[in-house]
Lab assay of single mutants.
Amino acid sequence: MQGVVKVNSALNMRSGPGSNYGVIGTLRNNDKVEIIKEVDGAYEIRFNGKVGYASKSYITIVN
């Protein structure tokens, strides 16, 4: 499943599905991501070869 990031500035990509996990990357508006699955209000995603988590509130599914 594919998604597009929709933010005003940037969205943190984290090592786990919550803000208490470390930041492993930054997503920008209109970045395209692969959605692997939904976990606790976040999506597990793949972006630029990395797998991490981002809030589903800022990712629009575009299948």
Rank of each mutant, 00 (worst) to 15 (best):
29 N>M: 08
60 T>C: 14
25 G>V: 09
36 I>V: 09
42 A>F: 15
45 I>K: 00
4 V>Q: 07
6 K>V: 11
33 V>I: 06
49 G>I: 02
29 N>E: 07
50 K>L: 14
43 Y>V: 02
21 Y>W: 10
48 N>D: 12
1 M>A: 10
35 I>V: 11
54 A>V: 15
21 Y>M: 08
26 T>D: 04
62 V>L: 13
34 E>D: 11
15 S>G: 08
1 M>E: 06
57 S>M: 14
38 E>I: 09
63 N>P: 13
20 N>Q: 13
15 S>Y: 06
12 N>K: 14
11 L>T: 11
46 R>F: 11
19 S>G: 11
38 E>S: 08
21 Y>P: 04
63 N>W: 08
21 Y>Q: 08
42 A>I: 11
21 Y>S: 15
26 T>H: 10
32 K>T: 12
25 G>A: 15
28 R>A: 10
40 D>H: 09
56 K>E: 04
43 Y>K: 00
47 F>N: 02
46 R>P: 01
4 V>E: 05
15 S>E: 11
36 I>W: 03
29 N>S: 07
47 F>S: 04
51 V>K: 08
29 N>V: 05
31 D>V: 05
31 D>Y: 04
36 I>T: 05
39 V>N: 04
22 G>V: 14
12 N>R: 12
5 V>A: 03
19 S>M: 13
15 S>I: 08
50 K>G: 05
24 I>A: 03
59 I>Y: 00
55 S>Q: 11
49 G>R: 03
49 G>D: 09
61 I>E: 05
21 Y>T: 14
3 G>Y: 02
9 S>C: 15
7 V>I: 11
30 N>L: 09
47 F>I: 08
6 K>M: 09
58 Y>P: 02
42 A>S: 14
8 N>C: 15
33 V>S: 01
36 I>N: 03
54 A>Y: 01
53 Y>G: 01
19 S>K: 14
5 V>Y: 00
44 E>N: 06
3 G>V: 03
15 S>P: 03
27 L>H: 01
60 T>H: 14
58 Y>Q: 08
22 G>N: 14
55 S>R: 06
7 V>Y: 06
11 L>H: 05
16 G>T: 06
57 S>C: 15
26 T>Y: 09
33 V>L: 04
57 S>A: 14
24 I>S: 04
29 N>Q: 07
8 N>F: 07
23 V>R: 04
35 I>E: 00
44 E>D: 00
20 N>V: 06
55 S>T: 11
11 L>G: 05
44 E>R: 06
4 V>H: 05
61 I>M: 08
52 G>W: 02
31 D>T: 08
18 G>S: 10
43 Y>F: 09
8 N>H: 13
17 P>I: 08
17 P>M: 07
23 V>I: 13
11 L>V: 15
58 Y>W: 09
13 M>F: 10
23 V>G: 03
24 I>K: 02
43 Y>W: 08
24 I>C: 05
34 E>H: 10
62 V>Q: 09
42 A>T: 14
5 V>N: 01
30 N>M: 10
29 N>A: 08
4 V>I: 14
40 D>N: 13
29 N>G: 08
24 I>Q: 03
37 K>N: 12
10 A>W: 14
54 A>I: 14
48 N>Q: 12
27 L>D: 01
28 R>L: 11
45 I>D: 00
39 V>W: 10
29 N>R: 07
32 K>N: 09
40 D>Y: 10
8 N>T: 13
7 V>G: 10
36 I>P: 00
14 R>Q: 07
20 N>S: 12
33 V>P: 01
14 R>N: 07
24 I>H: 02
39 V>G: 03
5 V>K: 01
60 T>P: 03
63 N>A: 13
60 T>R: 12
10 A>Q: 14
53 Y>C: 03
20 N>R: 10
26 T>I: 15
4 V>L: 10
2 Q>W: 15
29 N>W: 07
